[in-house]
Design a protein around this nucleic acid. Sequence first.
DNA 1: TTAAATGCAAAGCTTTTGCAATACT
DNA 2: AGTATTGCAAAAGCTTTGCATTTAA
Lengths: 157, 157
Amino acid sequence: VTAAGAAPAQRFSRPEHVLNLMRGRGLRVSAARRIVVATLFAAEAPVSAEQITAATAGGGAEVDLASVYRNLETLERLGVVRHFHVGHGPGLYALAADGRREYIACERCGAVRALQPEELDAVRAEVRSRFGFEVGFGHFPMVGVCGECRDEAGEAG
Amino acid sequence: VTAAGAAPAQRFSRPEHVLNLMRGRGLRVSAARRIVVATLFAAEAPVSAEQITAATAGGGAEVDLASVYRNLETLERLGVVRHFHVGHGPGLYALAADGRREYIACERCGAVRALQPEELDAVRAEVRSRFGFEVGFGHFPMVGVCGECRDEAGEAG
DNA sequence: TTAAATGCAAAGCTTTTGCAATACT
DNA sequence: AGTATTGCAAAAGCTTTGCATTTAA
Protein backbone atom coordinates (compact mmCIF):
# COMPACT_ATOMS: atom_id res chain seq x y z
CA VAL A 1 0.00 0.00 0.00
CA THR A 2 1.37 3.41 -0.92
CA ALA A 3 0.42 6.41 1.18
CA ALA A 4 -1.28 9.14 -0.80
CA GLY A 5 0.93 12.13 -1.38
CA ALA A 6 4.14 10.26 -0.70
CA ALA A 7 6.62 9.85 -3.50
CA PRO A 8 6.70 6.32 -4.86
CA ALA A 9 9.65 4.19 -3.89
CA GLN A 10 12.15 4.72 -6.63
CA ARG A 11 15.79 4.16 -7.41
CA PHE A 12 18.19 6.96 -8.12
CA SER A 13 21.54 5.48 -8.85
CA ARG A 14 23.06 8.63 -10.28
CA PRO A 15 22.79 12.39 -9.81
CA GLU A 16 21.29 12.83 -13.27
CA HIS A 17 18.33 10.69 -12.32
CA VAL A 18 17.55 13.08 -9.51
CA LEU A 19 18.04 16.14 -11.67
CA ASN A 20 15.79 14.66 -14.32
CA LEU A 21 13.15 13.98 -11.71
CA MET A 22 13.31 17.61 -10.68
CA ARG A 23 13.02 18.79 -14.25
CA GLY A 24 10.03 16.52 -14.66
CA ARG A 25 8.36 18.17 -11.71
CA GLY A 26 8.85 21.61 -13.18
CA LEU A 27 11.70 22.42 -10.85
CA ARG A 28 14.81 24.09 -12.19
CA VAL A 29 18.22 22.55 -12.23
CA SER A 30 20.46 25.21 -10.80
CA ALA A 31 24.16 25.12 -10.09
CA ALA A 32 23.41 24.93 -6.38
CA ARG A 33 21.18 21.94 -6.90
CA ARG A 34 23.75 20.12 -8.96
CA ILE A 35 26.26 20.64 -6.20
CA VAL A 36 23.98 19.56 -3.37
CA VAL A 37 22.90 16.45 -5.21
CA ALA A 38 26.46 15.61 -6.22
CA THR A 39 27.63 16.02 -2.65
CA LEU A 40 24.94 13.71 -1.36
CA PHE A 41 25.92 11.08 -3.89
CA ALA A 42 29.58 11.44 -3.03
CA ALA A 43 28.99 11.19 0.72
CA GLU A 44 29.80 7.89 2.37
CA ALA A 45 27.73 8.67 5.43
CA PRO A 46 24.86 11.00 6.31
CA VAL A 47 25.98 14.62 6.24
CA SER A 48 24.86 17.88 7.79
CA ALA A 49 23.83 20.93 5.79
CA GLU A 50 26.97 22.63 7.04
CA GLN A 51 29.11 19.79 5.72
CA ILE A 52 27.46 20.13 2.33
CA THR A 53 28.39 23.79 2.07
CA ALA A 54 31.89 22.95 3.23
CA ALA A 55 32.19 20.18 0.68
CA THR A 56 31.55 22.68 -2.08
CA ALA A 57 34.58 24.70 -1.07
CA GLY A 58 36.87 22.24 -2.82
CA GLY A 59 34.79 22.13 -5.96
CA GLY A 60 35.10 25.86 -6.46
CA ALA A 61 31.56 27.19 -6.15
CA GLU A 62 30.12 27.77 -2.71
CA VAL A 63 26.47 27.16 -1.98
CA ASP A 64 24.85 29.30 0.68
CA LEU A 65 23.69 27.46 3.79
CA ALA A 66 20.14 28.73 3.38
CA SER A 67 20.02 27.39 -0.15
CA VAL A 68 21.35 24.07 1.02
CA TYR A 69 18.57 23.81 3.57
CA ARG A 70 15.96 24.83 1.01
CA ASN A 71 17.24 22.30 -1.45
CA LEU A 72 17.40 19.54 1.11
CA GLU A 73 13.80 20.27 1.98
CA THR A 74 12.83 20.15 -1.68
CA LEU A 75 14.68 16.88 -2.18
CA GLU A 76 13.00 15.47 0.88
CA ARG A 77 9.60 16.37 -0.50
CA LEU A 78 10.54 14.51 -3.65
CA GLY A 79 11.43 11.46 -1.61
CA VAL A 80 15.04 11.60 -2.71
CA VAL A 81 16.48 12.55 0.65
CA ARG A 82 15.71 11.82 4.26
CA HIS A 83 17.07 13.41 7.37
CA PHE A 84 17.32 12.43 11.00
CA HIS A 85 18.73 13.68 14.27
CA VAL A 86 21.47 12.24 16.41
CA GLY A 87 21.63 13.53 19.93
CA HIS A 88 22.46 17.19 19.98
CA GLY A 89 24.11 18.33 16.79
CA PRO A 90 22.69 19.22 13.42
CA GLY A 91 20.32 17.15 11.34
CA LEU A 92 21.93 14.57 9.09
CA TYR A 93 20.87 14.09 5.49
CA ALA A 94 21.23 11.07 3.27
CA LEU A 95 19.90 9.76 0.00
CA ALA A 96 16.77 7.70 0.36
CA ALA A 97 17.65 5.88 -2.82
CA ASP A 98 17.48 2.42 -1.36
CA GLY A 99 14.19 2.95 0.36
CA ARG A 100 13.42 3.49 3.99
CA ARG A 101 16.26 3.27 6.44
CA GLU A 102 16.58 3.45 10.17
CA TYR A 103 19.67 4.19 12.19
CA ILE A 104 21.51 3.64 15.41
CA ALA A 105 24.20 6.05 16.52
CA CYS A 106 27.22 5.93 18.78
CA GLU A 107 27.34 8.92 21.08
CA ARG A 108 31.04 8.43 21.63
CA CYS A 109 32.59 8.15 18.19
CA GLY A 110 29.69 9.58 16.23
CA ALA A 111 29.35 6.54 14.00
CA VAL A 112 25.93 6.15 12.42
CA ARG A 113 24.93 2.70 11.35
CA ALA A 114 22.17 2.39 8.79
CA LEU A 115 19.74 -0.47 9.27
CA GLN A 116 17.06 -2.09 7.24
CA PRO A 117 13.73 -1.57 8.99
CA GLU A 118 13.30 -5.33 9.35
CA GLU A 119 16.41 -5.49 11.46
CA LEU A 120 14.57 -3.45 14.05
CA ASP A 121 11.27 -5.28 13.90
CA ALA A 122 12.06 -7.36 16.95
CA VAL A 123 12.82 -4.23 18.95
CA ARG A 124 9.70 -2.57 17.65
CA ALA A 125 7.58 -5.57 18.56
CA GLU A 126 9.07 -5.70 22.03
CA VAL A 127 8.26 -2.04 22.62
CA ARG A 128 4.79 -2.35 21.17
CA SER A 129 3.81 -5.31 23.29
CA ARG A 130 5.22 -3.88 26.49
CA PHE A 131 4.32 -0.24 26.24
CA GLY A 132 1.82 0.07 23.42
CA PHE A 133 4.04 2.48 21.54
CA GLU A 134 4.77 2.09 17.86
CA VAL A 135 8.29 3.41 17.60
CA GLY A 136 10.47 4.23 14.65
CA PHE A 137 14.15 4.92 14.38
CA GLY A 138 14.21 6.70 11.07
CA HIS A 139 13.98 10.22 12.40
CA PHE A 140 15.20 9.82 15.97
CA PRO A 141 17.57 6.87 16.09
CA MET A 142 18.60 5.14 19.27
CA VAL A 143 21.75 6.52 20.78
CA GLY A 144 24.27 4.44 22.67
CA VAL A 145 27.82 3.23 22.74
CA CYS A 146 29.00 1.03 19.93
CA GLY A 147 30.97 -2.17 20.47
CA GLU A 148 34.27 -0.68 19.46
CA CYS A 149 33.98 2.25 21.80
CA ARG A 150 33.04 -0.06 24.64
CA ASP A 151 36.08 -2.17 23.97
CA GLU A 152 38.31 0.87 23.92
CA ALA A 153 36.89 2.06 27.22
CA GLY A 154 37.86 -1.24 28.81
CA GLU A 155 35.71 -3.37 31.04
CA ALA A 156 36.88 -2.22 34.46
CA GLY A 157 35.38 0.99 35.84
CA VAL B 1 28.83 -0.33 42.67
CA THR B 2 28.74 3.45 42.77
CA ALA B 3 30.58 5.40 40.11
CA ALA B 4 33.16 7.77 41.52
CA GLY B 5 32.13 11.40 41.33
CA ALA B 6 28.45 10.63 40.91
CA ALA B 7 26.07 11.78 43.57
CA PRO B 8 24.88 8.92 45.77
CA ALA B 9 21.37 7.69 45.18
CA GLN B 10 19.25 9.64 47.61
CA ARG B 11 15.68 10.54 48.31
CA PHE B 12 14.36 14.07 48.29
CA SER B 13 10.74 14.00 49.23
CA ARG B 14 10.43 17.70 49.84
CA PRO B 15 11.90 20.96 48.55
CA GLU B 16 13.58 21.64 51.88
CA HIS B 17 15.63 18.50 51.54
CA VAL B 18 17.07 19.80 48.32
CA LEU B 19 17.69 23.26 49.73
CA ASN B 20 19.43 21.75 52.71
CA LEU B 21 21.60 19.68 50.44
CA MET B 22 22.60 22.83 48.62
CA ARG B 23 23.40 24.62 51.83
CA GLY B 24 25.49 21.64 52.90
CA ARG B 25 27.49 21.95 49.71
CA GLY B 26 28.22 25.58 50.36
CA LEU B 27 25.70 26.74 47.79
CA ARG B 28 23.37 29.60 48.60
CA VAL B 29 19.65 29.33 48.83
CA SER B 30 18.34 32.18 46.74
CA ALA B 31 14.80 33.15 45.92
CA ALA B 32 15.33 31.90 42.39
CA ARG B 33 16.47 28.52 43.64
CA ARG B 34 13.51 28.15 45.96
CA ILE B 35 11.21 28.85 43.06
CA VAL B 36 12.90 26.49 40.63
CA VAL B 37 12.96 23.68 43.17
CA ALA B 38 9.37 24.31 44.20
CA THR B 39 8.26 24.28 40.59
CA LEU B 40 10.00 20.98 39.94
CA PHE B 41 8.29 19.46 42.98
CA ALA B 42 4.94 20.82 41.89
CA ALA B 43 5.26 19.54 38.33
CA GLU B 44 3.36 16.43 37.42
CA ALA B 45 5.45 15.76 34.35
CA PRO B 46 8.89 16.76 33.10
CA VAL B 47 9.03 20.46 32.31
CA SER B 48 11.09 22.73 30.11
CA ALA B 49 13.14 25.64 31.40
CA GLU B 50 10.69 27.94 29.69
CA GLN B 51 7.81 26.35 31.55
CA ILE B 52 9.60 26.87 34.82
CA THR B 53 9.94 30.59 34.22
CA ALA B 54 6.31 30.73 33.16
CA ALA B 55 5.23 28.84 36.25
CA THR B 56 6.74 31.56 38.38
CA ALA B 57 4.46 34.16 36.87
CA GLY B 58 1.58 33.01 39.06
CA GLY B 59 3.68 32.96 42.22
CA GLY B 60 4.62 36.61 41.82
CA ALA B 61 8.38 36.59 41.35
CA GLU B 62 9.80 35.88 37.94
CA VAL B 63 13.03 33.97 37.46
CA ASP B 64 15.15 34.80 34.47
CA LEU B 65 15.51 32.05 31.90
CA ALA B 66 19.29 32.11 32.14
CA SER B 67 19.11 31.64 35.88
CA VAL B 68 16.70 28.77 35.44
CA TYR B 69 19.14 27.04 33.13
CA ARG B 70 22.03 27.68 35.47
CA ASN B 71 20.09 26.34 38.42
CA LEU B 72 18.93 23.30 36.54
CA GLU B 73 22.53 22.57 35.67
CA THR B 74 23.54 22.96 39.29
CA LEU B 75 20.75 20.69 40.44
CA GLU B 76 21.74 18.16 37.86
CA ARG B 77 25.30 18.17 39.13
CA LEU B 78 23.93 17.48 42.57
CA GLY B 79 22.01 14.52 41.23
CA VAL B 80 18.67 16.09 42.12
CA VAL B 81 17.52 16.69 38.58
CA ARG B 82 17.86 14.95 35.25
CA HIS B 83 16.99 16.17 31.81
CA PHE B 84 16.32 14.54 28.49
CA HIS B 85 15.26 15.45 24.98
CA VAL B 86 12.13 14.54 23.10
CA GLY B 87 12.29 14.99 19.38
CA HIS B 88 12.67 18.61 18.49
CA GLY B 89 11.60 20.89 21.26
CA PRO B 90 13.35 22.00 24.41
CA GLY B 91 15.00 19.79 26.99
CA LEU B 92 12.73 18.45 29.70
CA TYR B 93 13.70 18.45 33.34
CA ALA B 94 12.46 16.30 36.18
CA LEU B 95 13.41 15.40 39.72
CA ALA B 96 15.67 12.38 39.92
CA ALA B 97 14.39 11.71 43.40
CA ASP B 98 13.37 8.14 42.72
CA GLY B 99 16.59 7.16 41.06
CA ARG B 100 17.39 6.62 37.43
CA ARG B 101 14.55 6.78 34.97
CA GLU B 102 14.18 6.23 31.28
CA TYR B 103 11.43 7.46 29.01
CA ILE B 104 9.40 6.83 25.92
CA ALA B 105 7.57 9.68 24.23
CA CYS B 106 4.60 10.05 21.93
CA GLU B 107 5.35 12.34 19.05
CA ARG B 108 1.68 12.96 18.47
CA CYS B 109 0.23 13.95 21.86
CA GLY B 110 3.51 14.77 23.54
CA ALA B 111 2.97 12.35 26.39
CA VAL B 112 6.12 11.23 28.12
CA ARG B 113 6.00 7.95 29.96
CA ALA B 114 8.60 7.33 32.64
CA LEU B 115 9.97 3.83 32.86
CA GLN B 116 12.07 1.90 35.31
CA PRO B 117 15.32 0.94 33.61
CA GLU B 118 14.52 -2.74 34.09
CA GLU B 119 11.45 -2.36 31.94
CA LEU B 120 13.76 -1.63 29.04
CA ASP B 121 16.30 -4.33 29.70
CA ALA B 122 14.78 -6.65 27.13
CA VAL B 123 14.98 -3.95 24.48
CA ARG B 124 18.52 -3.13 25.50
CA ALA B 125 19.54 -6.78 25.34
CA GLU B 126 17.96 -7.17 21.94
CA VAL B 127 19.87 -4.20 20.59
CA ARG B 128 23.12 -5.27 22.19
CA SER B 129 23.01 -8.77 20.80
CA ARG B 130 22.02 -7.70 17.33
CA PHE B 131 24.06 -4.57 16.82
CA GLY B 132 26.61 -4.48 19.60
CA PHE B 133 25.37 -1.13 20.81
CA GLU B 134 24.67 -0.48 24.47
CA VAL B 135 21.76 1.93 24.31
CA GLY B 136 20.08 4.02 26.94
CA PHE B 137 16.80 5.90 26.92
CA GLY B 138 17.42 8.26 29.78
CA HIS B 139 18.74 11.13 27.73
CA PHE B 140 17.33 10.39 24.29
CA PRO B 141 14.12 8.41 24.72
CA MET B 142 12.50 6.45 21.95
CA VAL B 143 9.90 8.40 20.05
CA GLY B 144 6.79 6.90 18.56
CA VAL B 145 3.03 6.89 18.63
CA CYS B 146 1.31 5.84 21.82
CA GLY B 147 -1.60 3.41 21.90
CA GLU B 148 -4.23 6.06 22.43
CA CYS B 149 -3.08 8.16 19.52
CA ARG B 150 -3.02 5.12 17.29
CA ASP B 151 -6.57 4.29 18.29
CA GLU B 152 -7.71 7.82 17.59
CA ALA B 153 -6.10 7.76 14.18
CA GLY B 154 -8.08 4.67 13.28
CA GLU B 155 -6.74 1.54 11.66
CA ALA B 156 -7.56 2.27 8.02
CA GLY B 157 -5.17 4.51 6.07
C1' DT C 1 10.48 37.15 -20.61
C1' DT C 2 9.20 35.61 -16.21
C1' DA C 3 8.91 33.08 -12.34
C1' DA C 4 11.85 30.00 -9.71
C1' DA C 5 15.97 29.88 -7.08
C1' DT C 6 19.89 32.15 -5.12
C1' DG C 7 22.70 34.91 -1.82
C1' DC C 8 22.72 37.82 1.87
C1' DA C 9 20.98 39.40 6.02
C1' DA C 10 18.01 39.11 9.65
C1' DA C 11 15.34 36.57 12.79
C1' DG C 12 13.56 32.49 15.54
C1' DC C 13 14.33 29.05 19.04
C1' DT C 14 17.02 26.83 22.61
C1' DT C 15 20.91 27.27 25.37
C1' DT C 16 25.18 29.49 26.96
C1' DT C 17 28.09 33.26 28.48
C1' DG C 18 29.85 38.02 30.08
C1' DC C 19 29.31 41.35 33.37
C1' DA C 20 27.78 44.68 36.56
C1' DA C 21 24.37 44.74 40.27
C1' DT C 22 22.24 42.18 43.97
C1' DA C 23 21.77 39.55 48.03
C1' DC C 24 22.86 35.32 50.72
C1' DT C 25 26.01 34.05 54.59
C1' DA D 1 32.20 42.34 53.93
C1' DG D 2 32.85 39.12 50.53
C1' DT D 3 31.41 36.30 46.99
C1' DA D 4 27.92 33.36 44.97
C1' DT D 5 23.99 34.27 42.27
C1' DT D 6 21.05 37.10 39.68
C1' DG D 7 19.18 39.75 35.74
C1' DC D 8 19.96 41.65 31.52
C1' DA D 9 21.93 41.53 27.21
C1' DA D 10 24.51 39.55 23.86
C1' DA D 11 26.05 35.51 21.44
C1' DA D 12 26.33 30.78 19.82
C1' DG D 13 24.40 26.84 17.14
C1' DC D 14 20.85 25.20 14.04
C1' DT D 15 17.25 26.41 10.98
C1' DT D 16 13.93 29.40 8.73
C1' DT D 17 12.39 33.54 6.37
C1' DG D 18 12.28 38.12 3.72
C1' DC D 19 13.73 40.31 -0.15
C1' DA D 20 16.16 42.08 -3.97
C1' DT D 21 18.94 39.98 -7.57
C1' DT D 22 20.18 36.37 -10.54
C1' DT D 23 19.19 32.81 -13.77
C1' DA D 24 17.09 28.64 -15.76
C1' DA D 25 13.64 27.74 -19.00
